[in-house]
Design a protein around this nucleic acid. Sequence first.
DNA 1: TGGATCAAATTGTGATCACAAAATGCAGTT
DNA 2: AACTGCATTTTGTGATCACAATTTGATCCA
Lengths: 231, 231
Amino acid sequence: MPEALSLPEVPRPNDVTSQEYAYRRLRHALMIGAIAPGRALTIRGLAEAVGVSPTPVREALRRLSSENALHVLENRRIVVPEMTTQRFEELIAMRCCIEAHAAERALPYMSDVKIDELEMLDARIDSAFEANDLEASTTLNHRFHKEIHATNPTPVALPMIESLWLQLGPFLRVAAGYAQEYYTVDRHKEILTALRKRDAIALAIAMESDIRDGVGRLGRTALRRILGEAA
Amino acid sequence: MPEALSLPEVPRPNDVTSQEYAYRRLRHALMIGAIAPGRALTIRGLAEAVGVSPTPVREALRRLSSENALHVLENRRIVVPEMTTQRFEELIAMRCCIEAHAAERALPYMSDVKIDELEMLDARIDSAFEANDLEASTTLNHRFHKEIHATNPTPVALPMIESLWLQLGPFLRVAAGYAQEYYTVDRHKEILTALRKRDAIALAIAMESDIRDGVGRLGRTALRRILGEAA
DNA sequence: TGGATCAAATTGTGATCACAAAATGCAGTT
DNA sequence: AACTGCATTTTGTGATCACAATTTGATCCA
C-alpha cells in the first residue's frame, strides 16, 4: 500500500467545481515541489485526499497531463515525470526563449507605477529567501515573472510559461535539498533596471540570466550530484 | 437544437481507450479546421458523434482545453475560441519564437538522408497544394515542420508547438475561404537550403519567413476582411 | 411589435457501479 | 534463497443515474 498522499490546502470558493478544486490542489502541490518526481498517483487515492469522487479527479489528471506536469505510462499509470539532464536543460532553454520573448513584448505596456510594484514584490522575495521559506520564495518569484509577462495581457504566452514552471516544480525541492546553500545572485535588480530604462535588449539578457542563474544553476549542480551518486 | 456535429473519421486501433479516441477525433477535426471558431460543443452531442458515453468525452474536452484548443466559458459551456487580431498576431509570433528555437537545436542532429526525406515530403506538399487539397496540405505541412523539430527528440518543445498549431487550426479554413487565391511563396526551399548548409541563422530566418508568409499572411488578410465587413 | 414570465428541455457535474487489466502477495517448488 | 504459479486486491475505464443550473421557447401582457 502506497503511503497516503497529503496535498497542501488551497482555498475553495463556493462556486468552483470539484474538478477545478482537485486540479488546483494538485497543481499547487506540483508547483511548489510538494510531490517528488517518480511518484505514482492513483485516482482513488487522490479522490480520498481531496475529498471528492474519482470522476472529477480523472478530469483534473487529464488537464495536468496535457500541461505535461504529469506523465501517463503505457500501463495507464500516472506518475510525476522524472527529471533528466536533457529534459532539464530543455526546460531552462525554453523558459529563456519564451520568457525573454514575452518580456520584450510586455515592455511597451510597462508603466512606472507597475515597476514600483515589482520592486516591492522583489523586496518580499528577498525576505522569503532569507527566511529560507522555499514555498513563499517560489510562489513570489513566479508572481514577479507573471506580473511582468501579464502587463500586456497575453492569452497565448502565459499558459505556456506556466506549463514550464509546472514541469520544473517537482524537481525544485529535490534540487534545493542537494544544494547546501541555495542562494542566487539577485538578477531581479537587473530586470528592474532594464525595465526602467525601457531597454528591450538588456531586459531579455537580464531575464535569461535570472532564469539560468536561479533554477538553472541550482538544478544543474543537483543533477550532477544525483547522477554522480547513481554512477 | 444545434445542427449535428460530424467529425472526420480517424483510425481506431484496438487498444486505444474511448477517451483517447474521442480526443483524437476532436483534435484532428480542430487541427484541419473542420470546426469553425465560435462553435459550441456539448458533451452529449460529442458523445453521440463519437459513439461513446459522456464520461470519456469530458476527459477529452479537458485535455483540449488545457492545450488551449478549446475555451470554457463561465457558463461552463465549451466553445472553439474566436480569432482576434491580437491573438492571431501572438500565435504567429510565438510560433516563430519557438519553432526557430527548436529548429536551431535540431540542426546538429540533422543528417543528409533526413534532409532528402524532407525534400520528398516537400514535393508531396506542392502536389497537395496544387490540387487545392487543404486537409492534405495542412497535414503534410505540419509533418514537414514536425520532422525537423523532432530530429532532436524534444519532449518539451514539441507539445508546445503542436498546441500552437491546434489553436490556429480552426481559423485556417476561415482564412482560406477569404483568400481568393491562397498561394504561398515556397519558403520550404529556403529551409532545406539552410539545413544543407548547416547554417543556423539562415535556418531561423527561413523558418520565420515560412510561418509569417504562410499562415501569417493568409490570416492577416482574412482578419482584415472579416473585421472590415463587421465595421 | 417588443419585452417579461414561466414551464419544459437541455446541459454540465459528480457519484456509483460493473468490468477487465494490472499489480500484489503468498505458497509451493527447485 | 530465488523463482514460479495462482488467488486476491488494487486500479483504470466507461456507462448510467440523479441533481442543479442554464437555456430555450412559447405565452401573455403592455
